[in-house]
Nucleic acid binder design. Structure first.
Lengths: 362, 362
DNA sequence: AATTATTTGTGCGTATGTATC
DNA sequence: AGATACATACGCACAAATAAT
């Protein structure tokens, strides 16, 4: 049995949620409530006192009690928060800092602060972060998905955020089994163009290295496949390699896989390579086997990083709009915070020709 | 005439301020207060209720009311915040991401969240950020100073934070005109060792490139000077160059300065170079003038980044404990939050020999 | 393990003070 | 001036949690 004063509180709260009482309206007087609900004065007063403490009503001596401005359901998380949570998989990779920089620029101009979290590519960490975030008073959330190609167990937490009315925007990738808003790079198209570029340069036997656990890896693979098929070229699975994201334990394993892969590359004249970092690892390994880039093998990679720019052989790479992606995502999230509906957008990128591709005369 | 319940409140508050009641102590029972102060139960209850609302006491059914831990005057801003602000000059440089990664790791393990701000190396932005931060409820603040070599106009904001009891820890550098706690790299010693290394390799005419507006630039210059003087070597100011941090407007200007500098390098066999990025810019320019590294000129740089690692000529560079610095700073800040006093610590680093230095036979 | 005393929580009735309209 | 409404204050009764016996 609920206490009577609680029943009085609920009675008034119900009137607010059912909109019989609107902000500014006067609540029934104490004597009225006594008669209507058949309770004592003391009980009514205790109820009104607590509602007053909870900022639901405001009472004035000699006048009465009045509903406060904020509506009841939005009071818990007052929508004037100026904090945005950024949940990333990695913060020390080659593109995050630039992206972050663009994002921070746009958001700070509008007076927002960024709360930074990193999952270190672990879905259990992602879950903990989402739980913590759910309890916070946020204006919005930007998420770089963790292991985006794999089924994600944290869907209901994202649903919970949306249910609270907090906009969630994904960048870089998204969870394909969830209904989400995102701003990504059109990786399928980018990979298609990377592969086309090699074909235009006369290459026919083209392999690839892709990342197995994120969506970008799958999409880049898809673009590569589409292009090869459209051009009627044979796909040799010996010339395709999948790598998982390196954690502390996988580094050695990945090195072994790479060595094995290089040993099977005979006949392959060009590779589409998941990103500049992978390309550099690959080229280090090729150097061991006395294979020259681009003379023996050509490479097109992705992300167009400084790292690939300054490597011994500068790496021809699909562009990545790092800072722009951050700025754009920031602006889109601000739109969503204003109440407009989200977007699902894939940005197109072009190729940056450098020195890792040789034209074949055929 | 004050209301009686207010008198009861004052009676209890007085007992707290006069330390007759200490945190954790039990307040007189209601019946006792009724007898002692000769008021009704209702009055006593109203007083205790309000004190409970004000977080002065905590009451338990069947047990009594107890004084809360926090002292009366500090109750306004309750010190249980789990948010730490990180104020950096740049977030898209070569070492911040690693540092941030280490920091986040340590802090998130203890349940802290990071609020990220960047000044973009502008002291006016720094001021705005500090003002915003001052209004927030923070557990601590970590600052990478902005233009640390120049006089900083925001000293009183840092003083304000400290006055509020919020620990402030500087990393990377500090403002030398302020009394602050910090964890930095011992740049004087590092530069001394960089220069010693070149001398040991037979170099005598050694120049340098330094950053003019941050403390690290000055300290590295100082270490270089000390070393040259200790070894009785002549310092040729033509072989020393100062660069300011590049903003959008300064890039072109810096390029011109660099060109001019390279043209004066005749007779100089080695350079101490502020960091790997500067070294790469320099080497690009040297290449224009058909000067080879290390054959024509040797270079030792700082920060030991991937960028320098993978450059055409891998750059011999003083190490930088990026992730460790972040972790260490995080742990130190946690200590300070626990109430222990701050530290002023300079970490020693060693050299990473790569391929940008040639030994001279003399 | 059950009992008892203590202490806070809920609730009613009544009376008086004081601000608002 | 009077009606209305909230604020302060006293007294009583019973419920429920706690701690000591």
């Amino acid at each position: 049995m609920k206490p009577k004063y609680q029943q009085v509180k609920d009675y008034i709260k119900d009137q607010i949620t059912s909109e019989k009482l609107l902000p500014g309206d006067k609540v029934m007087s104490e004597t009225e409530l006594i008669q209507v609900l058949d309770v004592s004065r003391h009980t009514v007063r205790k109820a009104l006192n607590e509602l007053s403490m909870e900022q639901v009503i405001e009472t004035f001596k000699g006048k009465g009690s009045f509903i406060k401005d904020m509506s009841l359901d939005k009071r818990s998380h007052n929508r004037q928060s100026k904090v945005i949570a950024l949940v990333t998989a990695f913060i020390n990779d080659t593109i995050f800092p630039e992206l972050m920089n663009g994002l921070e620029q746009v958001l700070s101009e509008e007076g927002y602060s960024i709360m930074l979290y990193t999952t270190r590519n672990r879905v259990d960490s992602e879950r903990e972060i989402l739980q913590k975030i759910y309890e916070m008073d946020l204006a919005g959330v930007i998420v770089e998905p963790t292991k985006s190609a794999l089924p994600n167990p944290n869907g209901r937490f994202y649903e919970g955020l949306k249910a609270k009315g907090i906009p969630v925007l994904f960048i870089h990738a998204y969870y394909h089994h969830m209904d989400c808003d995102y701003v990504i790079v059109d990786d399928v198209k980018a990979a298609y163009e990377a592969c086309s570029y090699l074909i235009n340069k006369g290459h026919r036997k083209i392999g690839g290295i892709f990342k197995s656990d994120d969506l970008q890896g799958h999409k880049r693979y898809e673009g590569y496949l589409n292009c090869m098929i459209d051009h009627g070229l044979h796909i040799n699975e010996d010339h395709i390699m999948w790598q998982a994201t390196e954690d502390e334990h996988a580094i050695f394993n990945n090195k072994m896989l790479l060595k094995d892969f290089v040993s099977r590359l005979k006949g392959c004249s060009a590779l589409v390579c998941y990103n500049d970092e992978f390309a550099i690892d690959l080229m280090e390994e090729l150097e061991q086997e006395a294979l020259q880039v681009p003379d023996d093998i050509s490479i097109v990679a992705f992300d167009n990083t400084k790292l690939g720019d300054n490597y011994k052989v500068s790496i021809t790479s699909m562009d990545h709009p790092k800072a722009y992606l951050g700025q754009h995502a920031g602006r889109q999230l601000l739109r969503m915070i204003e109440g407009e509906k989200g977007i699902q957008e894939a940005l197109e990128v072009s190729i940056h020709e450098k020195s890792s591709v040789k034209a074949l005369q055929s």
